[in-house]
């Protein structure tokens, strides 16, 4: 485990050695991926939801590096309980990159739904409210996708996807995702390499669905430990016994295994009942984009 320092010399985060990536190559691959996705679809522009957190900040930097900041629209979508610090940090990213940005307050949409459609249940639990907010943001992003003429870029990382810490058709909805195969620790490493401001890298990751919420307190783990566990378990296919030999708590391994298994459905497209001769995703298999499918052929 290595401590990665910020500009002031103080440690920003711990990077497990086995998760360290070649960030130059990662930037090359991701840049090519972003340009390739847009080109295949016949688009030149992109849009993303910028929360003020590290994941979306990193994606904004990567997209700006790949296609130029002027082709990117960052949409800030705070709810009335979102922290001011999130908005400040998001605006720092917008300013540093020089991208277009818009602020869309989702409070009226969310409050309107819970006030009118569910008047009999005014105190919807936070998880339900959080999921609804994530889906509102998705709806706003896809609307701006049409007005801006750009594809929605995903900002979810591999750690949260594997443990299912995402909202189905909410924050995970996108046209393509450049960082979905990077663990949180690798997101931090790449963010530091590409120049995401230190204060964004340093702060505790949070879904910011209610004041004081953080990922690690809510789920009771630390990212370096969870990332290492997932890496050995998933990428390196280690058995129960081998995980113990690597020093992992068997109870934590079992708990994470359950999280992975119970969220499998979130990582896949919904199954279609097989009835006809050719069924999409089963025996009708095409690339997502092919000749004739591009919006504006170049």
């Amino acid at each position: 485990m290595s401590a990665i320092a910020g500009a002031d010399g103080a440690a920003m985060f711990d990077l497990p050695d086995e998760l360290a990536i070649d960030t130059d190559v990662a930037r090359q691959v991701i840049g090519q991926f972003i340009r390739g996705q847009l080109r295949q679809a016949g688009f030149e522009r992109a849009v993303l939801g910028l929360s003020g957190g590290i994941d979306s900040a990193l994606v904004a930097f990567l997209v700006a590096e790949a296609i130029g900041a002027d082709q990117l629209l960052c949409v800030l979508m705070p709810y009335r309980t979102s922290s001011d610090a999130s908005r400040t940090d998001a605006l720092v990213v917008v300013e540093q990159l020089g991208t277009a940005s818009e602020l869309v307050d989702i409070s009226p949409m969310v409050d309107g739904y819970f006030a009118t459609a569910l008047a009999s249940q005014p105190d919807a639990p936070p998880l339900r409210r959080g999921n609804f907010m994530a889906r509102q943001r998705m709806a706003v992003l896809y609307d701006r996708s049409a007005t801006w003429g750009g594809l929605v870029v995903g900002t979810g990382n591999k750690t949260e996807s594997l443990i299912g810490y995402t909202t189905l058709f909410g924050d995970s909805a996108c046209a393509f995702n450049p960082i979905g195969d990077l663990y949180k620790s690798q997101v931090r490493q790449l963010a530091a390499a590409i120049g995401v401001p230190d204060q964004i890298i340093r702060k505790a990751p949070s879904a910011d669905l209610w004041p004081g919420q953080t990922d690690e307190s809510e789920a009771d783990f630390s990212y370096p430990v969870l990332d290492r566990l997932l890496f050995w378990r998933i990428d390196k296919r280690r058995s129960d016994e081998e995980m113990v030999e690597l020093g992992f708590d068997p109870a934590l391994v079992a708990r994470v295994d359950r999280l992975i298994a119970t969220s499998e459905f979130k990582r896949q497209v919904p199954p279609i009942a097989k009835l006809g001769p050719r069924t999409a995703g089963v025996d009708y298999l095409y690339p997502r984009r092919r000749p004739g499918s591009a919006a504006q052929p170049r």
Partner: peptide, 13 residues
Amino acid sequence: PGRDLAATNEVGL
């Protein structure tokens, strides 16, 4: 297809 970005690789891939 390129894969495996581990920093320990000879040429980064």
